[in-house]
């Protein structure tokens, strides 16, 4: 017996790799400009991680490489952090609702990053409590979103007693 498949295809608009590579180039440039020459190798590793690995790992690696720069200048910081931010943005743009996802990333990441920066540099708070508070806040919001989606899909009800099966 035959299986019939009918498809109507439409094309997605953008290819995010170019945007991501721009971010990687910016981050690698910032590292080379602000740090020792061997950090050029770190820039190559960043590009490799982005192209063959995952952008998240590239961001983590870039952040670790930035720590290796002794007392980075504002330009170096801006280039590296901006580049890594563009890498994250490129992943958001790759999703089907690219405009909404990109907008959300462009809003949330700088907001949280800015608050952290202010807490650490201007208000001179300890890094660990600041990180713990912010990450806890993010986790709580994430859980609330999870519950909201379950309610929206009628998988659970507003009555907690009847929430026996949720995914």
């Amino acid at each position: 017996m035959s299986i019939a498949r009918e498809t109507n295809e439409r094309s997605l608009r953008s290819i995010p790799t170019v945007l991501g590579l721009l971010g990687i180039v910016a981050a690698a440039g910032g590292l080379v400009l602000g740090g020792p020459a061997w950090l050029g190798l770190a820039g190559v590793a960043l590009g490799g991680l982005y192209l063959f690995g995952t952008p998240v790992l590239a961001v983590v690696f870039g952040q670790i490489a930035l720590v290796a720069v002794d007392a980075p200048s504002l330009r170096t910081l801006a280039l590296v952090e901006g580049g890594l931010f563009i890498v994250l943005l490129s992943r958001a743009v790759a999703t089907p609702h690219s405009r909404a996802a990109g907008g959300l990333v462009a809003l949330v990441v700088p907001l949280l990053g800015g608050i952290t920066w202010l807490s650490l540099e201007r208000w001179s708070l300890d890094p660990l409590p600041v990180g713990a508070v912010l990450l806890t806040g993010v986790a709580v919001v994430g859980y609330l979103l999870h519950r909201y989606l379950l309610l929206e899909l009628d998988i659970v009800t507003e009555d907690p007693a009847s929430d026996s099966d949720f995914q």
Binding site: V56, V59, V60, G62, Q63, I64, L66, V67, E81, L84, F85, L88, R91, A92, T95, P96, H97, A100, A101, L104, V105, L107, V108, V109, L111, L112, G113, I115, T116, W117, L120, E121, P127, L128, V130, G131, L134, L135, V138, V141, G142, L145, Y148, L149, E152, L153
Partner: peptide
């Protein structure tokens, strides 16, 4: 190294933004 913490918060923010986008999409 506060810069690592900044990176962690940035990634967490990205994760949260992607989650919001997913919930909206679903």
């Amino acid at each position: 190294a506060p810069l690592l913490l900044v990176g962690a918060v940035g990634l967490a923010g990205w994760l949260l933004a992607m989650q919001i986008a997913f919930v909206r999409g679903v």
